[in-house]
């Protein structure tokens, strides 16, 4: 066990993956000599060299297209997109190609690719260094989507992603890259996909969150406890595959659900969760499902703290939900 920040845990995970398997390589903008703009790839270039840690030209479609080609050929590339906000030039490669290769070739051409991208707000990044658009990827058949919220999960989910034979979109909550520290197992630590993490047990309401929103959800639960409301907090960890069993079991127990994400509300992942609860936990629900999310505006700069969910807004929604029934 080592005490690490989240970004250090990502870095350890990358080192571990590259040591384990010579077919693993890293490519992206500024990932080599510079060690990444967030230092997530620091030290890789020195240890593994330019052949396996590739500084690419500034082209997201080039990075993902090349990563796909490498994977088709048999390598296991980890592509970094510097900010999730800049992934759209590669959207065609991700949605039309990466996600569909295995299916469209009848299983002949799988794509063993991990796409890493820092995402989310709270870093004064304005419109283009803040967005949380995981729903686009969760909506696309053929992609898995993992979003860690702790250093241990950052390493553990990343190593699972690298060993997964299918494409994984791995989203790193940059707001808490250095804001959280935690004990991280050394060596080959893996956290399985599709298993939500119970952050806090409770009986009155379940707070669903992932990534950078797990912290505020836990804060809200703490505040609610002082008021006599027992809130359960569930960290989804992966949106695809989704741990419906844990989600439903929790709501069957609490009868109430508050869904938290920083992405905009309309068609955000909370809409899917809400639908799952309506379809499969309807008779357990004692109150309407609530969503605490980013608003349906572009991501603001000066007003970002007003835009983002926080412990207060989450606790408020939970109180309202508990009072409703």
């Amino acid at each position: 066990m080592t005490e690490l920040t989240l970004v250090q845990a990502v870095n350890r995970g990358l080192h571990e993956a590259m040591r384990q398997d010579p077919e693993v390589l890293v490519l992206g903008e500024d990932v080599g000599v510079n060690g990444g703009v967030f230092r997530a790839t620091e030290g890789l270039y020195k240890e593994f060299g330019a052949d396996r840690v590739i500084d690419t030209p500034l082209s997201e479609t080039g990075i993902i297209g090349a990563a796909i080609g490498m994977a088709l050929y048999g390598l296991k590339p980890i592509a970094e997109i510097q900010f999730l906000d800049f992934i759209y030039p590669a959207f065609d490669q991700i949605v039309s190609e990466l996600a569909k290769f295995r299916y469209r070739s009848g299983g002949q051409y799988p794509c063993h690719v991990v796409v890493r991208a820092p995402y989310g707000g709270g870093v004064k990044g304005g419109l283009y260094h803040s967005q949380s658009t995981e729903a686009y990827f969760a909506h696309t058949a053929g992609l898995k989507v993992a979003i860690p919220s702790t250093p241990a999960d950052a390493k553990g989910l990343l190593l699972t992603a690298v060993h997964d034979p299918d494409p994984v979109i791995f989203l790193e909550p940059k707001r808490i890259y250095r804001a959280v520290t935690g004990e991280v197992p050394d060596g080959d630590h893996r956290v399985p996909f599709g298993q939500a993490r119970l952050v806090r047990e409770g009986n009155d309401v379940t707070l669903f969150a992932y990534g950078a929103m797990v912290g505020p959800a836990a804060e809200a639960a703490e505040a609610l406890a002082a008021e006599g409301i027992s809130a359960e907090v569930l960290d989804l960890r992966t949106l695809v595959p989704l741990d419906e069993r844990a989600i439903l079991a929790s709501v069957e127990k609490t009868g109430r659900a508050v869904i938290v994400h920083e992405a905009a509300r309309t068609c955000g992942f909370g809409a899917e969760l809400s639908a799952v609860l309506a379809e499969k936990a309807f008779y357990s629900l004692r109150a309407p499902v609530a969503r605490v999310t980013g608003y349906d505006t572009p991501f603001p700069y000066a007003l970002e703290q007003a835009y983002l969910p926080n412990g207060e807004t989450i606790a408020h929604a939970a109180r309202t939900t508990v009072r409703a029934g």
């Binding site: 390589l25 080039g62 090349a66 990563a67 080609g69």
Partner: peptide, 24 residues
């Protein structure tokens, strides 16, 4: 013979990536 798709040009970067793999 790699699986073809309909979007135009997407195979071009993939061919380069596969060539990078072959180089390595």
């Amino acid at each position: 013979y790699v699986s073809a798709s309909s979007p135009i040009g997407t195979q071009i970067t993939q061919a380069v990536g596969a060539a990078m793999a072959a180089q390595r």
